[in-house]
């Protein structure tokens, strides 16, 4: 049985369908990434899966429990952490752990064991008496995660868990997620950072409340199987983009750092033509080479296709 099973899940707010007939499944122990622009319906989906919001139609089960029929039973089985790292700022690290442990109904022995685990995991041993308000971002984030999984839930929802955190802490955080997954915990995570999505076993891209693409990163990159992406290094990226944007053999262009990515319609045989066009117009081309599609290429392509 899969840990999360979503079938035709829909949530309307008035006439607006925030989530529209969404279907996907997540296997036990999988790290499942949820990508989408702001307002695509990621948070609404997570809120329904957590039992916070009633679906308008369709169904979803989490660890075998139907979220519309028994939202309270769902809450026993999940951990949830939002981008706000919601902790009680006036309480100390230790008091936060004791509080959430008490709310989850842990007895003293289990709470002590879990307290040691969380302090160790978050690297907060020796800082038990610091107030949550005085913790740096990365520590707050890890403490928030620790408090959300005190009761060892089989499924964990993370809603943009790495916002506003430095790169070192982000890496550390993903190491923790990998550990959780290795111990059999299912993780559904939304993120804006496409490089983070590479940590996920599978990814769903949602757009305007609908599933636009789903699969492993390798599978998703197959959308470019028949097309070639070339990276053009030039000292005049803006002019280069303007020149090739409307060329018949170029599907579309986008800026990647200081270089330009162009999607060619007919594969590598168009490369020379593009190069000639640029040089003819006096734009120096330092290099023009086919590159493998990045997840960002995929995301932009899928979202554009989904319209």
């Amino acid at each position: 049985m899969n840990a999360i099973v979503v079938k035709d899940l829909t949530r309307r707010f008035g006439d607006f369908a925030a989530v529209d007939r969404l279907s996907f499944e997540v296997a036990k122990g999988e790290i499942f990434g949820f990508l989408g622009s702001n307002g695509a319906g990621k948070s609404t989906t997570i809120r329904m899966l957590c039992g916070l919001l009633k679906p308008t139609s369709g169904s979803a089960t989490v660890d075998g429990v139907d979220v519309s029929r028994d939202p309270e039973a769902v809450k026993q089985r999940i951990g949830y952490m939002s981008q706000r790292f919601s902790l009680y700022e006036r309480l100390t690290v230790d008091q936060n752990i004791s509080f959430f442990g008490g709310i989850y109904g842990l007895d003293r022995t289990r709470l002590d064991a879990r307290r040691r685990f969380v302090l160790d995991m978050a690297g907060l041993a020796g800082r038990e008496r610091l107030r949550a308000a005085d913790l740096a971002g990365g520590w707050r984030q890890r403490l928030a995660l620790g408090c959300a999984i005190l009761h060892e839930p089989p499924v964990v929802f993370l809603d943009e868990p790495t916002g506003g955190v430095d790169p070192v802490s982000r890496r550390e955080f993903w190491r923790l997620i990998d550990h959780l997954s290795a111990s059999g915990v299912t993780v559904l995570v939304t993120t804006h950072y496409l490089d983070e999505a590479e940590h996920c076993n599978r990814i769903a891209i949602i757009h305007a409340g609908r599933l636009a693409a789903i699969g492993t990163t390798a599978e998703l990159k197959q959308v470019f199987a028949d097309r070639t992406i070339v990276e053009i290094r030039t000292s005049n990226a803006v002019e280069a983009m303007r020149l090739i944007e409307r060329a018949p053999d170029v599907e579309k262009t986008s800026v990647f750092g200081t270089s330009v990515h162009a999607v060619l319609k007919h594969g590598e045989r168009d490369v020379d033509g593009v190069k000639a066009r640029l040089e003819h117009a006096g734009v120096p081309v330092a290099s023009i080479e086919p590159v493998p599609p990045s997840l960002e290429d995929v995301f932009l392509d899928v979202v554009e296709e989904a319209g």
Binding site: G51, E72, Q76, Y80, S82, S86, F100, I103
Partner: peptide, 14 residues
Amino acid sequence: ELGTLEQLNVTPLR
């Protein structure tokens, strides 16, 4: 405002 209310709402707290 802190978001802790939402956090409590996803716990089994009635």
